[in-house]
Design a protein around this nucleic acid. Structure first.
Length: 283
DNA sequence: ACCCAGGCGGGCG
DNA sequence: CGCCCGCATGGG
């Protein structure tokens, strides 16, 4: 199927959303020309070509998109909204988080940045690949995996590979895509998803139980699990803690004193609660 | 040439 | 528990 549509949005910036290092960054190409922001990205089911034209302040603008792939018109709209974090308003989130001085500053600097949501499988692979790695190399890995294992559409573009095609591959083949020591993690996870692990069940699970289930896989630890829950399942209370977030939280909220991982998570839960994911992105 | 990267698992005290 | 180490690979 293919199609095109558009709608008005507010509190949005395609540029800040792309640049914030979420899944959309690993599978998309961003460009800017004469006041128009453009993003091409792909999922396991199709590709999107998005243009955003800001029309005023407060992140208002018109978003138009084309899609190609295994989407009905309604599917495509829903996937696009989730993919760009546009399925929910952020005014309430801004109001609550903006009570914190540091976050108020960050929100004003990166106004319109959304927390994106893509399918859990794709999100998991991207973030397993992200460990001890750089964004540039993660993008390379994702593109190599897609070219090697992903479906090719009529126009020649490739989709993100499904779990089945990765599961029937080998550690060596995956390592050759640049995954290195992470190849066994991705293979193990793919095989788990194809055989017994029910990715869909995690939507209905509470955050702590879902996190525990993900962390039972080798190669999925505290941070990657939180990324999958936030960017794959939309569990907004997840607060992925990487070295940078840890440093910022210690510096800004603990007078520079070192904190354990548990202490950081406890802090995030108490201070940001259900909006910890947005707080993390803006920090 | 050399250093290092937005974590993780395993081994240690 | 908290801390420290090695890890595949390729970009700076």
């Amino acid at each position: 199927m293919k199609g095109a549509s558009g709608f008005y949005v507010k509190d949005f910036s395609l540029e800040h959303t792309f640049a914030s290092g979420q899944v959309i960054n690993f599978v998309g190409e961003f460009g800017k020309a004469n006041g128009m922001q453009r993003l091409d990205f792909y999922t396991t089911r199709g590709i999107f070509k998005v243009s955003f034209r800001p029309t005023g302040g407060s992140g208002c603008g018109y978003l138009s998109y084309e899609y190609l792939g295994h989407y009905t018109e309604a599917d495509a709209r829903r996937a696009l909204l989730l993919s760009l974090g546009l399925h929910k308003g952020v005014s309430r989130i801004y109001a609550l988080l903006g009570k914190d001085a540091l976050l108020a500053k960050a929100i004003s600097r990166f106004y319109g940045m959304r927390v994106t949501q893509t399918d859990p499988w794709q999100t998991a692979v991207c973030f397993i690949a992200s460990q001890f790695n750089s964004i540039k190399r993660i993008r390379q890995i994702v593109h190599k995996l897609s070219r090697k294992f992903g479906e090719r559409l009529q126009d020649g573009s490739v989709l993100f590979p499904g779990a089945e095609s990765i599961a029937s591959s080998s550690v060596r083949e995956l390592a050759e895509c640049g995954l290195g020591f992470r190849a066994k993690y991705v293979l193990d996870f793919a095989r788990g998803c194809v055989s017994s692990f029910d990715l869909g069940a995690l939507y209905r699970m509470k955050y702590p139980q879902a996190k525990e289930a993900l962390m039972s896989f080798d190669g999925i630890g505290d941070k990657v699990a939180d990324c999958i829950l936030l960017f794959g399942y939309g569990k907004q209370e997840a607060f992925p803690v990487d070295v940078w977030i840890k440093r910022i939280v210690e510096k800004e909220y603990f007078k520079g004193r070192k904190q354990s991982m548990n202490a950081i998570h406890k802090f995030a839960e108490e201070k940001f609660g259900a909006y910890a994911g947005y707080a993390q992105q803006y920090l």
